[in-house]
Design a protein around this nucleic acid. Structure first.
Lengths: 195, 195
DNA sequence: CGATTGTTTGAGGGCCATCAAACACTGTGG
DNA sequence: CCACAGTGTTTGATGGCCCTCAAACAATCG
């Protein structure tokens, strides 16, 4: 189980069953990479050439607005896939940055290889369809929260939904994800501590 | 082209190629329905049993919070698919309502039939994967907007991205989609008219 | 035409951002 | 091991954006 391939294969086997041959082909398109904390996996302006699976550690995808403020699009911990999907699909420069919040290991699949994979092992269409369905639902709930809940309610939803993430992230990163300033989140936590 | 089947088949042919046999099977699982303006396609509390494709008209999916305020999750016009996906996938009661903003025609596919379709015509996995990718990207951009932009900027983005939708919707529905009160949107429009 | 729904305008207030500064924690080099 | 820089958190004062409440106005529909 020290082989990182075991981890990703186990994850995939939750959704689809692969032949030994398929497994070999899949492994052949994976590129294993290690990132130091603070290291970029993708910088805005570059084209997102890979779909990435996190084996260990934690990444964040974020945009930077005109004021220089960072806004976190998503976190990706063990078992999550991440890329700037728009850039990946269209080949246009990425608007998102992706970097490591911890020392992190990923598997990267190049776009051409992923397309080959879809052709040779059509079951992957099914798997990514399902993963996207789940991600879509999660995003919808985040949108509903952001347009209907107060900052405090959103924070409460976040820690309820991702209790382990909350513990592992700096507070200011959570604030950025929720669309709050670090000061505001600090005050919210102070409020909640009273109860 | 007065046959609504033509419209959905044309849409699908953008992504996948079907044999005559596949087409017949696909048509056999479609249920054509007409909705009057204000009619529900789905009510919160019921289970979302169908994935729906809009042939004509306009639907909205929305949640209602504790205050009784409606928050629009998405609009669906001609060519869009809509359901409460979480309810559809899990079989749990829907948290979203879906109703018609105009007289509307849809095709509905029952969950069991959709699963059969995935098995018998695996290409549909590919198509829905691609549609979900696009929807995922659009949602991500909406999230970034909602946590990083002012109300005015969000409104501007909306009318730029969906110029035809803007014209066809009541203003208060756009406000609800953006997470604003109708009053605020009215004032924003007044501001913009000055320029 | 009246009833209902949608839009506008105004006054006032609350939530959260901004700006500023002190404090706490982490890691690195002397 | 301590000093110090860099990063993250807390606290306070102030202000702006947007909500709430209220009422008039406009548009749509039966």
């Amino acid at each position: 189980m020290s082989d990182p391939h075991e981890f990703i294969l186990q994850h995939i086997s939750r959704h689809i069953v692969l032949s030994e041959q398929d497994i070999q082909f899949f492994k052949s398109v994976l590129r294993h990479r290690k990132l130091r904390k603070r290291q970029y996996l993708l910088q805005a302006g570059d084209v997102s050439l890979y779909e990435n699976f996190v084996v260990k550690g934690c990444l964040r995808a974020y945009t930077v607005d005109n004021d220089g403020t960072e806004h976190i699009v998503m976190f990706a911990v063990e078992g999550w896939w991440v890329s700037d999907l728009y850039s990946f699909l269209t080949g246009t420069p990425a608007t998102q940055n992706i970097d490591a919040l911890e020392d992190t290991e990923v598997f990267s699949i190049e776009k051409k290889d992923l397309e080959k994979l879809y052709q040779q092992v059509p079951e992957f269409n099914r798997m990514f369809r399902i993963l996207l369905q789940n991600a879509f639902v999660a995003q919808q709930q985040r949108i509903i929260g952001s347009i209907s809940q107060t900052a405090e309610e959103q924070y409460h939803s976040f820690i309820t939904k991702y209790p382990t993430l909350e513990q592992r992230l700096p507070q200011n990163q959570v604030a950025s994800y929720l669309g709050l300033t670090p000061e505001t989140l600090s005050r919210i936590r102070k409020q909640q501590a009273k109860k």
